[in-house]
């Protein structure tokens, strides 16, 4: 699956909000077809990292090189780049005044100047794949959260991106809708689409990732395979983070929850 060709190179990336450093010199290389899952505690800079990659956040230092092109160059034509870098947001952000289909066709027709027939054929293909062709004339308000997010994924895919960025795309969904969205992403991963995924779904991360990037305090703490990271994390910081997702110990007689209760 890994053809090895470098798609994206990030060198010493620095991003500050006001005076606070969010990314402190982050370096990362992504190859063609790789699925990177970025995890870490909230505020560690994982969403900021994705947003820097398609120019939604201006960076303060370092370099981002996408397919040989320096995105940190102030002359960057972001409209061109964004057609090749698909982005899916936590809160879907479908355009509420357009139907599902119109949401999907807008980019290909207006930005990429494709004919309506060509754009429609592609939309039909992708909507069928996410089981929503029948709902193409629905407005976003008429769709469930999971359906909205699947339309949002198709909207990004319709541009034929070379890399997809997923920013906590299941964080706003009810549990039963999380699955339908994750299945779509897993499917895309198996087809060899290059992806950067920020998520809190650990089981999903483990299943879909080629590489796990554990971010904390604006830098990469661990960069390893899912098996190594989840079974045998190299750092204490990662172990502590992973423990948050384990509930097995709570009900032991001397578990931390009981202690907390006694203290009350």
């Amino acid at each position: 699956m890994l053809s090895g060709q470098v798609v994206l190179k990030i060198k010493d990336l620095v991003k500050n909000y006001d005076q606070r450093a969010v990314l402190k010199g982050l370096t990362l290389t992504v190859s063609q077809g790789e699925v990177l899952v970025v995890i870490g505690p909230s505020g560690c800079g994982k969403s900021t990292l994705l947003r820097c990659l398609n120019g939604l956040e201006p960076v303060n230092g370092g370099q981002i090189i996408f397919e040989g092109q320096y995105l940190t160059d102030p002359q960057t034509n972001w409209s061109r780049i964004r057609q090749r870098v698909g982005m899916v947001f936590q809160n879907y952000e479908l355009f509420p005044h357009l139907t599902a289909l119109e949401n999907i066709l807008l980019g290909p027709i207006k930005v990429q100047n494709k004919s309506r027939e060509e754009a429609l054929a592609k939309a039909e293909y992708w909507l069928n794949r996410v089981d929503l062709w029948d709902r193409r004339h629905s407005f976003p308000r008429q769709l469930s959260g999971g359906q909205k997010q699947r339309v949002a994924i198709v909207r990004a895919l319709a541009m034929d991106p070379e890399i997809m960025l997923f920013d906590e795309v299941t964080a706003s969904l009810d549990p039963e809708m999380v699955r339908e969205v994750l299945d779509v992403i897993t499917n895309l991963a198996q087809e060899g689409l290059t992806m950067l995924i920020v998520t809190h779904e650990m089981a999903f991360a483990r299943a879909v990732a080629d590489r796990i990037i554990f971010l904390d305090d604006g830098g990469i703490v661990e960069d390893s395979t899912p098996d190594v990271f989840f079974q045998n994390p190299a750092t204490e910081r990662a172990r502590r983070f992973l423990n948050i997702f384990h509930y097995d110990d709570i009900h032991k007689p001397n578990g931390s929850l009981n202690l907390a209760k006694n203290n009350l």
């Binding site: 120019g55 964004r82 952000e93 355009f95």
Partner: peptide, 28 residues
């Protein structure tokens, strides 16, 4: 702001963003 970012993410330029995303919603 999120709608603006969604529009930018599919490559719309400033004018297209106004024409297809912002103004129609603002009009209503």
């Amino acid at each position: 702001k999120d709608q603006v970012e969604a529009g930018l993410s599919i490559g719309l330029n400033r004018f297209q963003l106004l024409r297809y995303v912002i103004v129609p919603q603002a009009l209503a």
